[in-house]
């Protein structure tokens, strides 16, 4: 009897209890839902036609603090430099890959967001010139320095782009494991204390390459592509010369030149087998990736002024 009473009471309570009606107001306006309104400038139109439509890549040159480190002093890029910079990137990165790997390759693989920043990012004593997040976003700094006549700077910028794109490739399909065992002892987290010369003696293409096998792999790719085969060959020869010179050798355990050649061979095979990309010219008269990028860098003024 008591149970029934309580049960009945609870049922009554359930039915009569609070029935607040909270309607969503019909006239609610969410600010900038679907993006901020903007009148497209000439720059915006160019970016839409050249990056958004063909590659679905977003190029952000207008200031958005939330794309960047929140604790650093940074400034936006000069708008007038945006098109020259993006023409350079298109001519020396996208187009060479399209030629060697087909038009869909970049569309499938490329990072989807480029963030352009005018100043360098100052750290404790060093500056950052480029950063990538998970192969989807590339941030490039110090672009207000960009000048079509400064090929040294352009190579540095393009090395960053090729470097980050290298990560995207090997994160999609890993390079052969044997690459990690060519110079396994030399990888170090304190790569910034390794001089370029020491890196060479250990069989690396740069100091940063000693950071990890992944960095090593993409440094090989980006430096060979941006600085050319000749520069790489010179480094290999120099490394071997030091190894063979008893006065300079100083207890080196292996020939660093040979190590560099081994890495190069794996890189060539990886690019060809996985992505059908020829690093070097496959046959006389047919250009590989390196030649195409070098040609573009040598004609950079023409590409930018086009």
């Amino acid at each position: 009897m008591k149970k029934i009473f309580i049960l009945t009471s609870l049922i009554i309570m359930l039915f009569t209890s609070c029935t607040k009606e909270d309607k969503i107001p019909s006239n609610t306006q969410f600010l900038n839902l679907g993006g901020e309104p903007y009148t497209d400038s000439q720059t915006d139109v160019w970016l839409y036609d050249n990056y958004v439509v063909p590659y679905n890549m977003e190029v952000k040159y207008k200031w958005d603090q939330f794309e960047l480190a929140l604790n650093r002093t940074l400034v936006p890029v000069y708008e007038s430099l945006v098109i020259p910079i993006m023409k350079t990137i298109k001519g020396t990165w996208i187009e060479p890959y399209e030629q060697v790997a087909g038009s869909t390759f970049i569309k499938k693989m490329s990072p989807k967001k480029f963030i352009l920043v005018g100043s360098p990012q100052y750290n404790n004593g060093t500056i950052t010139l480029g950063e990538a997040e998970g192969g989807r976003k590339i941030v490039m700094y110090r672009l207000n320095w960009f000048s079509v006549n400064d090929i040294t700077l352009i190579r540095r910028i393009m090395k960053t782009v090729h470097h980050e794109f290298g990560h995207t490739m090997h994160q999609t399909v890993m390079y052969p494991e044997e690459y990690m065992y060519i110079t396994p002892q030399a990888y170090t987290s304190s790569w910034n204390n390794v001089s370029d010369m020491d890196a060479m003696k250990l069989g690396f293409i740069s100091s940063y390459a000693t950071a990890s096998p992944d960095e090593d792999f993409v440094e090989m790719l980006s430096i060979i592509v941006v600085y050319g085969k000749e520069a790489f060959d010179n480094r290999v020869q120099e490394a071997t010369r030091i190894y063979n010179d008893p006065e300079l050798n100083g207890g080196m355990k292996y020939d660093p030149g040979a190590a560099l050649r081994q890495k190069e061979a794996i890189l060539i095979a990886y690019l060809k087998q996985v992505w059908n990309v020829d690093l070097y010219d496959p046959s006389p008269g047919v250009k590989g990736l390196v030649s195409l990028v070098q040609d573009a860098l040598n004609n950079i003024e023409e590409i930018v002024n086009k």
Binding site: Y61, K62, W63, D64, R72, T73, L74, V75, P76, V77, Y78, E79, G118, S119, P120, Y122, N144
Partner: peptide, 14 residues
């Protein structure tokens, strides 16, 4: 002020 202009000169970290 989302693209570089004279106001950014003062804020430029360089």
């Amino acid at each position: 002020f989302d693209t570089y202009n004279y106001l950014h000169l003062m804020a430029d970290p360089q």
